[in-house]
Design a protein around this nucleic acid. Structure first.
Lengths: 332, 332
DNA sequence: CTGAAAGCGCTAACAT
DNA sequence: ATGTTAGCGCTTTCAG
């Protein structure tokens, strides 16, 4: 049987209040009783039941972190950032992966809310997050990370600068003389994709080049998905000389397919990926990636959540800049 | 303000008991009241407070999952397996990454225990897990995944067959004529490493070859760590013609360093890695890996936890076989 | 079919 | 300095 505070109190001949105070240091307790109580606590390995405590204090010191995919290096690092900061601040993280399933995402938010987490950091599967207002209208703290949509009101966000990401990557390719640039992406109807695509378009028009819907290819965010998307893109179009990939696993698939088709990188087709993965440097050719500060995004998201928890009025949108890691696959 | 069951009951002119019963379907309630109550619940978006429910029922339908590292592909997949199965069974997972920090691991177990999770799946940072007995002696359900130590009593486990993993990988290299095989590993004092090393030794002696302590190199489980370890191993020893890497990130680092040193793979040095990573196939040369069924290990671990929860006597050790993905880096 | 009331383990006034 | 007690939001006997 689990031992409770009552058991400790009984054995020490004191009240539960006293026990509670020695545990939490909330009041001065006489040396003598303090010692006695501590001894009994240790003897039984007594651990306070946080559930009861949470119920009473209406605070759990845990936050929910809901992400939409997992093997993804960007997300993994962001999660790491959130966890790091949460730990520093004495918070626990309840991490749930929704696997890009919108239905499961709402379920999860429900569940976490009912578990009294103090707040939630969400990287949503889609722009369809109007349901959040049900929670945030009651001032339940939510912050969006990575992906967002303005339909969610009263919700601060921290993301990478996706417009700039798309613009910079495209500009780099353009500067290298490419005029027919394919884009392979994984998730439609999401701010990250949309913003990067806007950057792509604007870079194009800077060069007075037309935007071709045909140059966009949607696929699954896996190695296999990248392979298929590359194949399809190349079959559908003519004259593509560069590919901008919006997902790290897909980048690997794209390169794999290109090699299989004996297409030379970067001579025949240049490649820029999104998100730097561990092996980028030992692939032949080493792959150029544009990256966002994922860990920082995670940390900042947690800081933002804390601000929101402490001050329901808190409202800020933070956008962190990308950077480019130049290697060989872009023709540099 | 959060609306509670009491609020619903008041507005419906019924008792909280009745509300509880319509929510949980625990008793027949008249059509009329049922409708009325449901309507009010929807009107306010009422969600039962699970914390209170948990406290009352002494059950949380959530399990803890404590792992020791994260970017690691093996762990990521195992986590995925656990989550999958947990979701199927209606459980929530509290995932915590201890970052190979033994102290934080014990802290975490404490914390989870105090949050009344129904059980914990642990992949420990070390063999030093005697502290678990404090919990398991009281029949708190714990199962070990991936790594284990017999010092923890009353704890079922599910792992890969690490002995076989070491044996098979080494045997493969031996069959290719290598007699001087280096091993690069990341975590000492852990069953996975120990068992794989035993497999390595036994394969060696099958070929009547001596075991050389010098051929073992310890490093950090990162790309950089792999680079450093490869460098150190090669400087310390002579005549190494093959390397067996026990970690995927390190494998990448090892290959990177070998390339930097213009050492040809597999002609000069053959490489076999542990854990198949996404880009293994597009690296030059494509890398041979020995893999364990990580996702299955995760799923099985959760099933085992459930068995343990439902039957405190449950006690079983499950060991799943590895398989080899042959590519070019081993000289095949 | 419905309600009253006890109680899960803890905290925090309030009283002594 | 310590104890008494109400109550966090829910479930679940037990009565009616």
């Amino acid at each position: 049987m689990k031992v409770t505070m009552k058991d400790i109190a009984r054995e020490a001949n004191v009240s539960t209040a006293t026990v509670s105070h020695v545990i939490n240091g909330t009041k001065q307790i006489s040396e003598e009783k303090h010692k006695k109580i501590t001894a009994i606590i240790n003897k039984y390995n007594y651990l306070p039941n946080s559930t009861a405590k949470n119920l009473r204090k209406n605070k759990t010191m845990t936050a929910g972190l809901v992400v939409s995919s997992f093997p993804d290096s960007f997300i993994t690092e962001m999660v790491y950032g959130v966890e790091e900061r949460a730990r520093e601040m004495g918070y626990q993280i309840l991490l749930v992966n929704t696997n890009e399933n919108k239905y499961y995402e709402e379920e999860t938010i429900n569940l976490l809310y009912s578990k009294m987490v103090d707040g939630i950091i969400l990287s949503p599967t889609s722009s369809d997050i109007g349901y959040l207002n049900k929670y945030t209208n009651d001032n339940f703290p939510v912050v969006l990370a990575n992906r967002y949509d303005p339909i969610a009101e009263n919700v601060p966000r921290v993301t990478g600068d996706n417009y700039q990401t798309g613009y910079d990557a495209t500009m780099h390719l353009l500067d290298h003389g490419h005029e027919n640039i394919g884009v392979i992406y994984a998730v439609p109807n999401v701010s990250t994709t949309r913003d990067r695509l806007n950057g792509y378009k604007d870079a194009l028009s800077k060069y007075h080049l037309p935007f071709l819907e045909d140059n966009l290819e949607l696929g699954y965010a896996t190695v296999k998905g990248g392979e298929n998307a590359a194949k399809s893109l190349l079959e559908r179009t003519v004259g593509i000389t560069a590919i901008f990939s919006l997902n790290d696993l897909m980048t690997i698939g794209i390169i794999s397919k290109l090699k299989e088709l004996s297409i030379k990188i970067p001579e025949d087709i240049a490649v820029i990926g999104f998100g730097d993965f561990a092996s980028a440097n030992i692939i032949n050719p080493p792959v150029t990636n544009i990256v966002q500060p994922s860990e920082t995004i995670g940390k900042t998201a947690f800081d933002t959540l804390l601000s929101k928890i402490n001050n329901p009025e808190y409202m800020k949108h933070i956008e962190l800049p990308p950077s480019m890691i130049l290697r060989k696959s872009c023709g540099c």
